[in-house]
């Protein structure tokens, strides 16, 4: 099953829409609540990053019998040092975004902790792609 969503730069009001829809789908498919929780945390963080740090992008989700694959691809400034960005506490979030409670530098670590496979690729000045996989069993 394939699903696609669009996320728009600065559109915090709709942050989490893709995650919420994927959550519903997985529940309907009777995927275990423990797995659904992990998928939701990881996808929400990737969605928010495309909204907060980039100029929006797309979320593509593929659900197979044994796993879910999520790809969040944005057009944006890219990440110059991915290893640094992965460190808990590292954030370049703007002051107005921090005021909303984002910018703890915990988003990428949350993704890492909750998925079975995480692959972040980025080109400065072009954009970032976050690929995540969670196995169902």
């Amino acid at each position: 099953m394939h699903q696609e969503y669009t996320v728009i730069e600065g559109d915090f009001v709709n942050a989490g829409k893709a995650s919420s829809s994927v959550k519903k789908t997985l529940k309907q498919l009777n995927v275990s609540p423990q797995i659904v929780k992990r998928v939701v945390v990881a996808l929400y963080e990737a969605e928010v990053n495309a909204i907060a740090h980039a100029y929006g992008g797309t979320v593509s989700v593929d659900i197979e019998a044994d796993k879910i694959t999520m790809v969040v691809a944005d057009k944006g400034p890219g990440i110059p040092d991915i290893a640094l960005a992965m460190q808990e506490g590292y954030s370049t979030a703007r002051p107005e975004v921090r005021d909303m409670g984002f910018g703890a530098g915990m988003g990428l670590p949350n993704m890492q902790k909750n998925v079975d496979k995480l692959n972040v690729t980025s080109e400065v000045g072009v954009g970032t792609t976050v690929e995540m996989e969670v196995n169902f069993a």
């Binding site: 945390v41 928010v48 703890a104 988003g107 949350n110």
Partner: peptide, 19 residues
């Protein structure tokens, strides 16, 4: 901190915040 809650709160929790 939203990512802190996202990562660490549990189902059924009360969430106390000023956001």
């Amino acid at each position: 901190l939203l990512s802190d809650v996202m990562g660490n709160a549990e189902m059924g929790n009360v969430w106390v915040t000023l956001q």
